[in-house]
Design a protein around this nucleic acid. Structure first.
Length: 170
DNA sequence: ATATCGATCGGCT
DNA sequence: GCCGATCGATATT
């Protein structure tokens, strides 16, 4: 079993221009409009795959892009970007629309993270030209497995600490 | 029909 | 910081 800790993500929603589903449904983004709990995989720049978790109800395009994963006992940079993590997990277009479930051998779980890895930075998304101002990227401040841009972009002026609401309320 | 643009990355200046 | 790889989707002629 190959597993890791998701250390960087971005959110996309049909309501904003950064989202593949902003304009209309196409063969490429169809999964994004489908049921939640599935993988939306697409080819970017003709060279790398990007992995999203479809998050919202059917017919409302939205998803969370997995940007970086820390894998225990492996090079800390092995999955430090959207394309890199897709490569490491062997995910490609054939996995588009795959159901996320234990039965399917592909799932997420809410694990525990060491105390020194709990600081979360919320800031703007990377590599897009539209809706750049939306602060919909999150990463673990102290992880060395975040994407290259996140490693260098740790200026507190543009970023701010963020606490997940489920922890605030618990 | 042709041109431009990406939710990227590694290599190079 | 800039560039090319490489291809599907979208914009333009």
């Amino acid at each position: 079993m190959l597993w890791g800790v998701i250390v960087e993500t971005e959110a996309y929603s049909q309501s904003e221009a950064g989202c593949h589903g902003f304009k209309k449904r196409t063969p490429r983004n169809a999964t994004l409009f489908g049921d939640p709990g599935r993988l939306y995989v697409y080819l970017t720049y003709g060279t790398y795959h990007c992995i999203n978790i479809v998050t919202d109800k059917r017919d409302w395009a939205s998803g969370v892009l997995l940007r970086a994963i820390a894998i225990p006992n492996e090079n800390e940079r092995i999955a430090s970007g959207p394309g890199l993590l897709a490569n490491r997990f062997g995910l490609n277009l054939t996995h588009d629309n795959s159901l996320i479930s234990i039965e399917n051998g592909l799932w997420l779980s809410k694990g525990s993270v060491s105390n020194d890895m709990k600081r979360i930075i919320q800031t703007t998304r990377i590599g897009i030209s539209k809706a750049k101002n939306l602060p919909w990227r999150w990463y673990l401040q102290d992880s060395r497995s975040v994407s290259k841009r996140a490693l260098g972009d740790r200026s507190p002026s543009l970023s701010k600490a963020w606490t997940p609401s489920f922890e605030k309320n618990s």
